[in-house]
Design a protein around this nucleic acid. Structure first.
Length: 586
DNA sequence: TCACGGAATATTTTT
DNA sequence: TATTCCGTGA
């Protein structure tokens, strides 16, 4: 075949082997920095170049960014045909399929996705109903409850076991927790809500129960590729197995040494057992590292060598020299912060851009003291891994209005936006919602609700907003503007830092310009929210934005910098106190 | 029933 | 840092 791309020249032998292996099951063990993305990209290009229909290639990743980036590079490599490749996250793929077929598994009226915050709010409502139970100490917080429920799903274990193993301090509430879990499931079913986990659960169910659907999908997607396979959970592995169907053209790429999401159900057994599930599988290892200098690789090899279960691999590099990693002992948290700040200042003075330096830590709050120190020294930084734009309260508030507008029976959103009003607390909010639900006349049910005299000023304004938005056709952005205009006084009262938050809201309205109507906008906000900060900054490579990177180690995976600091390298911090007592955790 | 303020709490993160 | 929770007083 006459290839436009010079695969032999641009890939090393192992990469080339993976790229050329286009039929049948393939497991690629890709060590850190070994050109995993490159391999996947070239393989996509290769398949397309061979004449495979782009639409029959399905590339599943964990973040939407990863898949976009790969398809973008493949397109650059070959041509626009690569744009036709089906790619996305497990969740967005599940959504696409379920939108088409959910009616086959009991969602006759469609469904809407609730994000983590929504699901926590819903759980919180269940929690409030349980207050009678809490005589012996308080129940877990809503966030903890959401964690427990989600973990149970992702690990495919009963809620009881999760509490027993991971949250023994809540054992005395076991019954209440179990009850709340069931209530939460019921609420979701009643409202046709799916949370993130449900997307996967129901996709699996659909594929299992409907052979015709499954056959159809398998016929459509003849070539599967899965990135970061070590971070898949049981459900995802099952989905892959079902999708691989009879053709078994499935390539999974991952690194057992980089499995860091066990806490949310990722099961590195998936990658260890791939060859059992697909006996014909070929295994290829990528061991040449293009990222790090030798002393660093030597250190990591020693660490990896000690793992009891692993694919044996030895990373090597052709980059000679390089300094040894340094271990610095600090007397106190603040002396650590001062040392790091000072070093960074020196590095910067010697010409290293700030955005080529990173400080990594195990948990977000570990950097609090350093942040203060950096601010004092006037070193600009971005922090990655904290809260995201779309999760912040003010954004959720605005979205809540739009959601209630889109779905008048959305209990979570009504509750949220009603609580924003003066003189309306949980009780009144629920009463109003019940009225709306009972009326069954969409938002007119809301307009009819009444409160005691003198208490309804806020409510009247909200009614006015809704009538206004319903009375005339509006673009998504116009609706956004209307809501923001209504919401600004509330924002100012609620937050001291409202100028910053107001800017966020403007940003949100800008995003809305891109959408023709509410539904895709709301779905995207749940499924593919805009990621601010780090990755954007790096990809755009905006040189004006020269800021130090602070990041959790988790958010740093796959990235690289000129110099990296790891703070709090101390038993109890890193590794975390929660891991110290448990060999597997460690 | 609601608002308010102070205390407690928090792994890690994606969807 | 940023929420969430809980007790108190109105």
């Amino acid at each position: 075949m006459n290839c436009r791309i010079l695969y032999k020249k641009e890939l090393n032998p192992s990469q080339l082997e993976a790229v050329n292996f286009t039929e049948g099951p393939l497991l690629v063990i890709a060590g850190a920095g070994s050109g995993k993305t490159r391999t996947l990209t070239y393989r996509v290009a290769r398949l397309v170049e061979e004449g495979v229909l782009p639409g029959s290639i399905l590339l599943l990743t964990f973040t939407r960014k990863a898949s976009q980036e790969m398809l973008r590079r493949a397109t650059q490599l070959l041509d626009d045909r690569c744009k036709g490749v089906a790619g996305g996250t497990f969740h967005s793929f599940a959504y696409a399929i379920l939108r088409k077929y959910a009616h086959k598994i009991g969602f006759e009226n469609g469904f809407s996705i609730i994000d983590r915050a929504d699901s926590e709010d819903l759980i919180s409502m269940m929690r409030k109903k349980m207050t009678g139970v809490s005589k012996s100490g308080s129940l877990p917080r809503k966030q903890t409850l959401a964690n427990i429920f989600s973990r149970a799903v992702n690990k495919d274990m009963p809620v009881e076991d999760i509490v027993l193993n991971d949250y023994p301090q809540f054992m005395r509430h076991l019954e209440a927790i179990h009850e709340m879990s069931k209530a939460y499931q019921r609420q979701k079913a009643e409202h046709n809500f799916m949370d993130y986990d449900d997307l996967l659960i129901y996709l699996e169910m659909l594929l299992k129960k409907n052979n015709d659907v499954r056959d159809n999908i398998c016929k459509t997607y003849q070539f599967l590729m899965v990135d970061e396979y070590q971070d898949t959970n049981k459900i995802q592995a099952e989905i892959i197995y079902l999708l691989a169907g009879t053709h078994e053209n499935v390539m999974v790429v991952g690194d057992d040494s980089q499995s860091i999401y066990a806490f949310r159900g990722a099961n590195f057994e998936n990658i260890m057992r791939f060859s059992e599930i697909f006996p014909k599988a070929r295994t290829i290892q990528l061991e040449e590292n293009y990222r790090s200098v030798e002393p660093i690789l030597k250190l990591t090899n020693v660490i990896i060598e000690r793992a009891t279960r692993k694919y044996s691999k030895v990373l090597f590099t052709q980059k000679p020299g390089g300094a040894l990693p340094l271990l610095i002992k600090a007397k106190s948290e603040n002396s650590q912060s001062r040392f790091v700040a000072e070093k960074i200042q020196k590095l910067h003075d010697s010409g290293v851009p700030l955005n080529q330096i990173a400080v990594l830590f195990r948990a977000s709050f570990h950097s609090f003291d350093l942040e203060i120190e950096l601010a004092r020294e006037g070193i600009p930084f971005v922090k990655v891994g904290g809260f995201k734009f779309v999760e912040s309260a003010h954004i959720k508030d605005v979205l809540g209005h739009l959601k209630a507008l889109f779905n008048p029976y959305d209990r979570i959103s009504w509750y949220r936006i009603l609580l924003l009003l003066d003189n309306i607390g949980p009780k009144t909010a629920l009463n109003i919602y019940e009225t709306i639900l009972a009326e069954k006349s969409e938002y007119t049910g809301f307009v009819k609700t009444k409160l005691k005299a003198g208490r309804s000023r806020g409510l009247d304004k909200l009614k006015h907003l809704f009538s206004d938005m319903k009375s005339r056709p509006m673009t998504v952005a116009q609706m956004g503007e209307a809501v923001v205009k209504y919401y600004l006084p509330i924002l100012k009262k609620k937050y001291d830092d409202h100028p910053k938050r107001t800017r966020d809201l403007e940003h949100l309205v800008n995003i809305m310009e891109r959408y023709p109507n509410l539904e895709p906008f709301l779905t995207d906000m749940a499924l593919e929210p805009p990621n601010t900060s780090l990755n954007d900054t790096l990809l755009n490579g905006d040189p004006a934005d020269d800021r130090l990177i602070l990041s959790t180690v988790h958010s740093a995976k796959g990235l690289e910098w000129h110099t990296v600091f790891i703070i709090w390298a101390l038993d109890g911090r890193f590794p975390s106190i929660h891991a110290l007592h448990d060999e597997t955790e460690l």
